[in-house]
Design a protein around this nucleic acid. Structure first.
Lengths: 148, 148
DNA sequence: GGTCTTAAGTTGACTGTGTCAACTAAGGTT
DNA sequence: AACCTTAGTTGACACAGTCAACTTAAGACC
């Protein structure tokens, strides 16, 4: 039975992505999921840099660069060079970006409620908790050597 | 808190995929995950057709066509026209395919054990169970209208 | 028998995601 | 100065997922 956990994950992820995209599309939001996730990071992390996003989302730097390029050119994000460290850059949401994120947050709430509608709060917490344990297992395993 | 379930999923999926690919690569298995998943379907479903795989994995028919083309050309899978229904086709593993799947199954077991190492059997069952409930929620939601 | 519809599979084109390697530029070290 | 590290950029590529148009085969119906 244990071995099927992978298929469960694939399936769940598939349907989850589907719903996120569909929900967003129905509200006229047509940007990809990775962009949405990046917006959330920028909002949450103070003085957010590209690296911060990459670390938090476990994504490649290059991917972030490309996402940011589009977010900036769409007017959702502003990029200014950090005054104290010219290697780094400070990311912040524009007014437009903030408004977009507000709408996304509302959609997220609805989507999460829909996805968890037959579950108790305890079950949801358990699920997230178990997920975290598994992520830890995977990170510390010999298979995945994160030098950090 | 509920809204973060999405990020948990993304993260878990990311690390899970990473491990699957890495584990396979270390054993010299260099085919993509979708191919592996398809092989498992063919093995599990008697008289498996392309559509069966697409349904079971919630993937597009076209994707399956392409996966099968490679699996056939690599000699892992055989494709014969169904005698009673010429629209359909019967898929079966070749000897090579069977051997490959055996190796994959062993790797899967190790990977699953690694991923679940600090979890009780009950927690694993709960996790799978909750996943299924969420998949059902997503399928039956107004967002995702599966006409089938 | 001849249309009409549906189902299975194929193909092409395209978007999004993830990864790798080579590179620039800035900062720190000695 | 020469050297190393870090943040970010760019190019190239593989994989994953989606959509629409198409072929071929079966079944339904007059």
């Amino acid at each position: 039975m244990k071995e099927n956990i992978g298929e469960s994950l694939h399936k769940l992820m598939h349907h989850y992505r589907h719903q996120v995209r569909e929900t967003a599309a129905k509200s006229g939001i047509l940007i990809p999921v990775s962009h949405i996730r990046s917006l959330k990071c920028i909002n949450k992390i103070t003085n957010c840099s590209a690296k911060d996003i990459a670390d938090r989302l476990s994504l490649d730097k290059s991917q972030i660069t490309r996402v940011l390029k589009e977010l900036v050119s769409s007017g959702y994000v502003e990029k200014i060079r950090s005054p104290d460290n010219h290697r780094s850059q400070l990311l912040s949401l524009t007014k437009r970006g903030s408004e977009l994120l507000t709408r996304i947050t509302m959609l997220d709430r609805v989507a999460a409620q829909n996805m968890t509608q037959n579950l108790t709060d305890q079950q949801i917490e358990d699920f997230i908790h178990i997920s975290e344990i598994m992520v830890n297992n995977l990170n510390q395993s010999p298979f995945c050597d994160n030098h950090g």
